[in-house]
Design a protein around this nucleic acid. Structure first.
Lengths: 353, 353
DNA sequence: ATGAAAGCGCTAACAC
DNA sequence: GTGTTAGCGCTTTCAT
């Protein structure tokens, strides 16, 4: 194929404006040492010719690439896409990330990287070498993968770690999982529940533990603590089914259950239905994530909303700030979630109260 | 920030292998004129040093960028993301596009472009100038936007037009909207329905018309044609509501309705409920798109599945083939959809039969 | 405040 | 077959 060349380059602009390449470059990058009238003349030529700098050339000459790389776990993401369960994590990431990037003159590139792969390092290194991004947004479980964190740190690329308390390098951000779990627990306590079960997510994700912590603290504070009310899953439907059975078949079953994600909640709903438990009359349920499907279940689910878009948006801001030399804060940036009340929560049944 | 340079460049590899840059370049690009043993030696150095070519540099020297750009309508996409209705169009695009790109050694970049903007052209031109993609995947309604098509044609960038019959430049692909509508119509006719309504999508999308055509043909073939059974919407919930009312409040209402997307189907479901019509006993419904929510409605919806992932995957294949010089076929590549039967279709009520 | 020169990492074109 | 040379479009020195 014929080699495609840039149609309008910095040279054309320089010639048109009658200045040196350097001056044009200064205007493009808003650098000092350009007289206002000079800057105006150059800008006029840029507009007239419809000039846009080539990212490749900018990157080549050792400056910024104006690319922010967001990476997600490959296996899980593809499974979600194939499963078509309406999990819109990626969409919310793009919503927050792309818009913020656009606002700041950057572009977001989304990539998948295998966590469970002995060549994570090679894979990520290749992506970085090829794309040369100015920053990277890490999501769980990558955010706490020491190989990835170490690699990025060594490469001196600013990076955000979503869902990480951030011991070590990088910019940590959380969605306040602990606080959200407390919120949900308190809501149920306020409704009069005393036996509140909790189905935890995969221990591979640190946030799973934080959510458990939030529930446990609130239960303890209310004098309601009972570890028998805790069951672990791994975020999958099957694991939610098993956990719900354990909880509901126990001698003294809970009157309410908080479930760590929507897929496990679907399973819990099904297990409850099989036992002729009516929601929320016989059993209250609060879900985590608030993906689209929670509005379509019977009844619609009260859920903890995860502010994914906003968190990624903040992450991009912080990365770009760091890239400009601002010292990143060592304490995690917290973007709080909220409880969205729908139809799956009510006071506990009188009989058991 | 310190200027980040490539850690391992082609020079390092050349030095390590004791050959010229050019030989390394040849090995990277699988070009001829390299002896097997030479190629092995170079490859060994590449592996040893963990070398990955810089896309920026490759692009700079006038060759490929290994980037495929996929663009979607900005307004609609952001509205979908914000609305959190589980519309997974973007996810399915990425699923098909990213995997195929990865398979062929390319990367997919997803971007949003405004259709309803007098500066579509400027916007797209900027994206292309900045990214220098080797190919572009267009989705409706961009696929038939003459400004965009003209621009890409002039720039000599191979591009695919999904949902376009492709008059003019570019590689056309469709998901057989007409055939799918026929499929749905025939299914209802086979169930015994004689008055089958159709709610069309926005006329701005050519595929809206094709779906109507498919319905109409099948109805005519069965001697059931009646233009009073056709109502136009614009894919929005509100428009679906209005269209459903028109159809159901008519003197001789349909016993079945085919709706051109899931959002309008949701509205139709609601309108039916308000009229105490039980689905599918009193009214059969078939939806288009088969987004995740159709499994959660009451009852779950029989729907036409749009093979988005596969279509984008094919588009990427065709683009890369074209970029390598293969002459693209002028007739559209068709990726057929399928009818997924769930609980919203049944024989018509006896009384009306 | 502006310009000139050098070089980023790679490939096309041309030698050998 | 393999190496050499020039140059892609831009930014960074370093002069002026």
């Amino acid at each position: 194929m014929g080699r495609r060349r840039q149609s309008v380059t910095i040279k054309h602009v320089a010639a048109d404006a009658g200045v040196s390449l350097q001056t044009v470059s200064r205007v493009i990058n808003n650098e000092p040492n350009v007289r206002p009238e000079m800057q105006k003349r150059v800008q006029a030529s840029i507009d007239k010719l419809g000039y846009v700098p080539s990212i490749a050339a900018q990157r080549m000459s050792g400056s910024r690439s104006y690319l922010i790389l967001a990476i997600n776990d490959r296996e899980r993401t593809i499974a979600d896409w194939r499963g078509r369960q309406g999990i819109d994590w990626v969409d919310q990431m793009l919503l927050g990330g792309m818009l913020k990037c656009a606002e700041l003159g950057y572009r977001m590139i989304f990539e998948l990287v295998d966590t469970h792969n002995d060549h994570v390092e090679r894979e990520l290194r290749a992506t970085i070498a090829a794309l040369q991004p100015d920053g990277v947004v890490l999501t769980p479980p990558h955010s706490d993968n020491p190989l990835i964190v170490g690699l990025l740190d060594k490469a001196k690329i600013p990076f955000a770690r979503i869902g990480s308390l951030g011991n070590g390098a990088g910019i940590p951000l959380t969605m306040d999982d602990e606080g959200s779990a407390q919120l949900a627990t308190r809501h149920l306590i306020d409704l009069g529940h005393r036996r509140i079960g909790f189905i935890a997510g995969s221990p591979e994700y640190n946030l799973s533990g934080w959510r458990v912590d939030g529930w446990r603290e609130e239960m303890e504070a209310a004098g309601l603590a009972d570890e028998a009310l805790l069951a672990w899953g791994d975020f999958s439907y099957a694991s939610g089914e098993a956990a719900a059975r354990t909880l509901l078949d126990s001698a003294d079953p809970p009157t309410a259950i908080i479930v760590s994600n929507d897929q496990m909640t679907l399973a819990t709903l099904e297990v409850a239905r099989a036992r002729d438990l009516e929601i929320p009359r016989d059993l209250s349920i609060i879900s985590f994530d608030n993906t689209p499907i929670v509005r379509f279940t019977q009844p619609p689910l009260t859920a903890v909303d995860q502010p994914i878009a906003e968190t990624v948006s903040r992450a991009v801001e912080l990365i770009i700030a760091a890239q400009r030399g601002e010292a990143p804060s060592k304490t995690p940036t917290v973007v709080r979630g909220s409880l969205v009340e729908r139809g799956s929560t009510a006071p506990p049944p009188k009989a058991r109260r």
